[in-house]
Design a binder for these strands. Sequence first.
DNA 1: AAAAGCTATGAAAACCCTTTCAGCATGATT
DNA 2: AATCATGCTGAAAGGGTTTTCATAGCTTTT
Lengths: 327, 327
Amino acid sequence: MNIYDIAKEAGVSISTVSRVLNNKSNVMPATREKVQAVLDKHSYTPNAIARGLVARSMKTVAVLTVDVRVPHYARTTYIIERAFSKLNYHVLVCNTGGELEEARRYARLLAERQVDGIVLVGSIFNKLGQDEEVAACLHNIPVVSANGQPGLPNGYSVLVDDVQGIELAVEHLAQKGRQNIVYVKDLDTDSAQLKQQGFYTAMQKRGVKNAKNRVIKAEYGLAGGEEAAAQIVALRPDAVVCAEDLTAVGVMKGIINAGLKVPEDIAVIGYNNSEYSVICTPELTTVDNKVEMSALFSVQLLESLIEKDESFSSMSIQPELVVRQSS
Amino acid sequence: MNIYDIAKEAGVSISTVSRVLNNKSNVMPATREKVQAVLDKHSYTPNAIARGLVARSMKTVAVLTVDVRVPHYARTTYIIERAFSKLNYHVLVCNTGGELEEARRYARLLAERQVDGIVLVGSIFNKLGQDEEVAACLHNIPVVSANGQPGLPNGYSVLVDDVQGIELAVEHLAQKGRQNIVYVKDLDTDSAQLKQQGFYTAMQKRGVKNAKNRVIKAEYGLAGGEEAAAQIVALRPDAVVCAEDLTAVGVMKGIINAGLKVPEDIAVIGYNNSEYSVICTPELTTVDNKVEMSALFSVQLLESLIEKDESFSSMSIQPELVVRQSS
DNA sequence: AAAAGCTATGAAAACCCTTTCAGCATGATT
DNA sequence: AATCATGCTGAAAGGGTTTTCATAGCTTTT
């Protein structure tokens, strides 16, 4: 059933059917009803692909992320989808698994699909613009990074001040009288670099030399954190700041298994304010990096870019500390 | 830059360009090279919308879910996306937030988009087929439910034996000598019904009368579980089986806060084998309902339906118990 | 050397819409 | 009564591909 069939049966031209379909004003009520009746009778479904061909857009945006299963990314994806859905866009989700080759492939395919825009979720994509093929594919498509900088001519950013985030954590610990603070890094993204920088800055402010010796590398995740706990305990700190909640929970578990108490012996702080932080025991003090807010800003920014509002500008977000039991 | 521009510049017809683009065999090597050179020069991107119009498919499937943020659903979505991506399909993600009206809207829009198939994630969609409008929209589109029955003529199921899942949990507790078992229900989906049924069946097998009096209703989630703990403790059970991991964690927290020990005083078992179960303390014994497997089966099933293999049939999955510290 | 069979190419139709432009009434204006 | 505006409708073009069918030029066969 297409527009021709409807037109024939209703005894009008396809133009008129199209007008009825799109609620244009210049159709006589009688004609409109006649057409509508046929439409209803066959429960006609307009073909969005054909419409998209004419409109040069299928009202689709893509979310490019490493892995939607990471709660942080899932939350971002959810907000983006809900918000764009309200704007009558659909959302494609693309998991690269951290592979550059996959990101390249998606860039190519999304360009072919003529997506209206792309949201990059995760600062791992900061280097994406440097890839020639990716840059070539996307030179025409608005790109927003929800937590980083796309490094593309048509790319815009929502930035989260991760330096400040870790500073808040260290500051809080210091105020609680913690003297001997250690930092646990895990991933190796731009955002992670900022966090580490925040640790250095905060330590410097407190007059601590050799902050570099207070950084411990862990594998991301629960097991990684637990494993790193041995090294941490060996340093006899009275507080640990971790780059990610999940790793922080692992660290806590490791510390507790080593016979020490959190927060009495060692305070622990995580990052992301994920649900993990309220599930673990003791509940985890963490830095809220405003995932929902950055997602929402990204949507607004991308929408302006798509609709060519020209009113866009990159935005910056300040994290907040959420104090719970672990500190 | 479209196929006409390329054709003109290469001095051939658009048919030939199309043939080169699609790697058809019947093109003279010299011609092919000539065309390819022009293609490369302009880094031509074929228009997938136009292709889709001809092919009557944009190689797209949709994942319809309540909320991708729920880890269970995020895992399913991830697997589906990765698997379909390998098959050269893209995945639209649709969050209904549990609203029927949203589901209706998506059904309509997805039909318009001519999606090749839909995966329903969550047994809440079991009733979806009963909705007339939805049924009308989807009568042409293959639908697979990753954990339930779509109730549509063209709908197929991957079923997880949730009755058996809860039976396993009760069985395990009984073997550990627990006599006084309580069940905590939260959501009100078909899957939840099955689980409750499993509790009744298992209790009956053990000769326990009045199992109905041993069912407690909680709100889904951490807070819901914690709240329900008061009621539970009042019953003085020696074990609790919960319908969801997250609620189970809440229940555990509540029990511990009431001054009792898990598992010494009360054992707790959850459902889903989510990451929550290893994050909480003590680690949660839980039923693994094979989320990844059901997602993968759904993909296979949907692919067969799309490619009209005719070799499809609904599948069933047996859950497994994962014993951890809480029991 | 003529007939038959291939192969590479191009013209044109098809996919299903939207939109522009022209036409034709009808009613209003002078 | 002639002109003009106004409102509704249809024809046709356009959006960017793929695919079918016809054709022209070769090569092979007899």
